[in-house]
Amino acid sequence: MISIDIVGLRFQVRAAAIFVHDEHVLLHKIESDTFWALPGGRVEPGEDAQATIIREMKEELNESVECTGLLYTVENFFTYSNKPNHEIGLYFQAQFHPKSPLLEKSRSHIGVEGGERLEFRWFPRESLPDLDLHPAFLRECLSKPSLSFQHIVQRG
């Protein structure tokens, strides 16, 4: 994965999937975390970002997905586990097969990442402004009726 510790911070490249279905957005979190994020993962050397999303969804949920257009490029500066991070994020629209059991919105779906349990859950778009969602710009952007390409610099 493209993640290195350099000059006192962690630098990484992450690809994330934006799944929107019936005015809901799919988010996930590590069970021990208190905040939600978009599903995805760190890009491997030599791997393109869309392939990262396809690989991560297969590894975490054993689910095949399709990635479509790039929606956001994000320069994200944050602290996680007491370590400063500088992340370059590529956020793509994605979709599940129309008969996927993951489209069920009445319950959480459980996945696994490196031995840690992940919870995946659908949230109504109108509820996102009140959710502990990281990076914070997503609360507003994903609540809008239509999504359009943006370059975002997120600090904190």
Results as ranks from 00 to 15, higher is better:
residue 128 L to A: 05
residue 87 E to H: 04
residue 29 K to T: 09
residue 35 F to L: 01
residue 20 V to I: 15
residue 4 I to Y: 06
residue 130 D to F: 11
residue 47 E to M: 12
residue 104 E to R: 09
residue 17 A to G: 10
residue 82 N to M: 12
residue 121 R to L: 13
residue 105 K to V: 04
residue 11 F to M: 09
residue 51 A to W: 06
residue 22 D to H: 15
residue 117 R to N: 15
residue 10 R to Y: 02
residue 20 V to E: 15
residue 32 S to E: 15
residue 8 G to C: 08
residue 104 E to M: 00
residue 131 L to F: 05
residue 9 L to Q: 13
residue 147 L to N: 05
residue 78 F to V: 03
residue 120 F to T: 03
residue 138 L to Q: 07
residue 47 E to Y: 07
residue 116 E to F: 07
residue 35 F to W: 14
residue 110 I to W: 09
residue 40 G to W: 07
residue 10 R to E: 11
residue 119 E to K: 10
residue 121 R to H: 13
residue 86 H to N: 11
residue 149 F to Q: 10
residue 87 E to G: 03
residue 49 A to M: 09
residue 47 E to A: 03
residue 22 D to N: 15
residue 64 S to N: 11
residue 110 I to E: 13
residue 42 R to N: 15
residue 31 E to F: 02
residue 82 N to L: 13
residue 42 R to L: 06
residue 143 S to P: 01
residue 64 S to T: 14
residue 145 P to G: 05
residue 75 E to R: 10
residue 12 Q to I: 02
residue 94 A to Y: 04
residue 67 C to A: 09
residue 116 E to R: 10
residue 41 G to C: 06
residue 12 Q to H: 09
residue 58 K to F: 10
residue 99 K to C: 07
residue 55 R to C: 04
residue 50 Q to F: 02
residue 149 F to G: 01
residue 134 H to T: 14
residue 79 T to C: 05
residue 94 A to S: 11
residue 51 A to Q: 15
residue 99 K to N: 15
residue 149 F to R: 12
residue 120 F to R: 02
residue 76 N to S: 05
residue 89 G to P: 03
residue 129 P to H: 13
residue 113 E to F: 09
residue 105 K to A: 09
residue 111 G to H: 05
residue 68 T to F: 03
residue 109 H to N: 06
residue 102 L to Y: 14
residue 25 V to P: 02
residue 98 P to D: 11
residue 69 G to H: 08
residue 78 F to E: 10
residue 119 E to W: 01
residue 127 S to K: 13
residue 117 R to M: 08
residue 126 E to G: 00
residue 134 H to V: 14
residue 20 V to T: 12
residue 108 S to G: 08
residue 100 S to R: 09
residue 14 R to W: 07
residue 124 P to R: 12
residue 99 K to Q: 15
residue 126 E to W: 03
residue 78 F to Y: 15
residue 34 T to F: 02
residue 59 E to P: 00
residue 72 Y to R: 02
residue 110 I to K: 13
residue 25 V to A: 01
residue 133 L to Y: 10
residue 132 D to G: 00
residue 148 S to N: 08
residue 60 E to L: 01
residue 20 V to S: 06
residue 91 Y to M: 04
residue 129 P to K: 13
residue 97 H to T: 08
residue 14 R to A: 08
residue 80 Y to M: 09
residue 63 E to V: 05
residue 81 S to A: 13
residue 125 R to K: 15
residue 124 P to T: 11
residue 110 I to N: 08
residue 104 E to S: 03
residue 107 R to A: 05
residue 71 L to P: 00
residue 98 P to Y: 09
residue 148 S to K: 10
residue 148 S to Q: 13
residue 86 H to Y: 14
residue 80 Y to C: 02
residue 5 D to H: 12
